[in-house]
Simulated assay, not measured.
Amino acid sequence: MKRAEELTPPRALSTTGETAQRLNWLRAGVLGANDGIVSVAAVAVGVAGATTSSGPILTAGMAALIGGAISMALGEYVSVSSQSDSQRATIEQKRADLKAHPEKNLAELARNYENKGLSPSTAALVADELTESDALGAHLAAELDLEEDHVVSPWHAAFASAVAFTLGALLPLLAILLPPEHLRVPVTFVSVLLALGITGWIGAIIGGGSRNRAAARVVVGGALALAATFAIGRLLGASGLVG
């Protein structure tokens, strides 16, 4: 008969959770870049609609980039801090429960493997050997799809979010500052909408949704945002309120 470790390797128990976590990080990165593209492009195009001077466009664009990156990082830090606190609390509760009720938890672990399709005898063997090796790890993986060493880091999340936003924001900023004045807005529109289509496509691949539909949604939304801010900038410039 095979040993329990051969039937269900402890490391394999968390594979699904780790994969899902990586996909979530990748999806968050794509969304952060998308936010950077849209928000900075909208600000830059709006200012470009009011003035052709590079100084105000650069100032507004950099302010939007820095403010947006900090805001994204803070938001991600707060959100992930709450998640990590919850994970740590869950781990400590399970640790205390295992210490107080070892037999009950062993029976629960065996039932968990029975529900996954193992026979009662095999489930009992798996639960017994995994409990002997690492009781807390076995319960966290089987019941909560969680690993003690893989609690999410709010600092990592904040840094990743800020970097993704900044990388996305650099595209419209360069697109509107590098071309000649008469080409600034058209070049920015084309480059931003193309980039949004790519991020929408990638996001759909990660999420398993319709790629064309996802790309079309972000492109249409981005186009509306750019058109609206450019129109407002033009109106303000024409009114004389902005020089």
Rank of each mutant, 00 (worst) to 15 (best):
T8S: 09
T8L: 15
T8I: 15
P9R: 08
P9K: 11
P10M: 15
P10F: 09
P10V: 03
P10N: 00
R11K: 08
R11A: 14
R11H: 11
A12P: 00
A12C: 00
A12N: 06
L13N: 05
L13T: 04
S14W: 07
T15H: 02
T15V: 11
T15W: 06
T16E: 08
T16Q: 05
T16P: 01
T16V: 03
G17F: 05
G17W: 02
E18I: 12
E18Y: 04
E18F: 08
E18W: 10
T19L: 06
T19I: 10
T19M: 03
T19E: 09
T19V: 04
A20S: 04
A20Y: 00
Q21C: 00
R22T: 05
R22Q: 09
L23G: 00
L23F: 10
L23I: 04
N24M: 10
N24Y: 02
W25K: 07
L26P: 13
L26S: 11
R27Q: 13
R27N: 15
R27D: 14
R27G: 12
R27Y: 13
R27A: 13
A28T: 08
A28I: 07
A28W: 13
G29E: 11
G29V: 08
V30M: 05
V30E: 11
G32R: 08
A33E: 04
N34Q: 15
D35K: 07
D35F: 08
G36W: 04
G36Q: 05
G36N: 06
G36A: 05
I37F: 06
I37G: 04
V38A: 09
V38D: 06
V38Y: 05
S39L: 07
S39R: 02
S39K: 00
V40P: 01
V40I: 02
A41I: 03
A41H: 01
A41G: 02
A42N: 06
V43I: 10
V43A: 11
A44F: 00
A44H: 00
G46Y: 00
V47A: 02
A48N: 04
G49Q: 06
G49I: 10
A50V: 05
A50N: 06
A50P: 08
T51I: 11
T52M: 14
T52C: 12
S53E: 15
S53A: 15
S54Q: 12
S54A: 14
G55W: 15
P56Q: 11
P56M: 14
I57E: 02
I57T: 08
I57H: 03
I57L: 04
L58M: 06
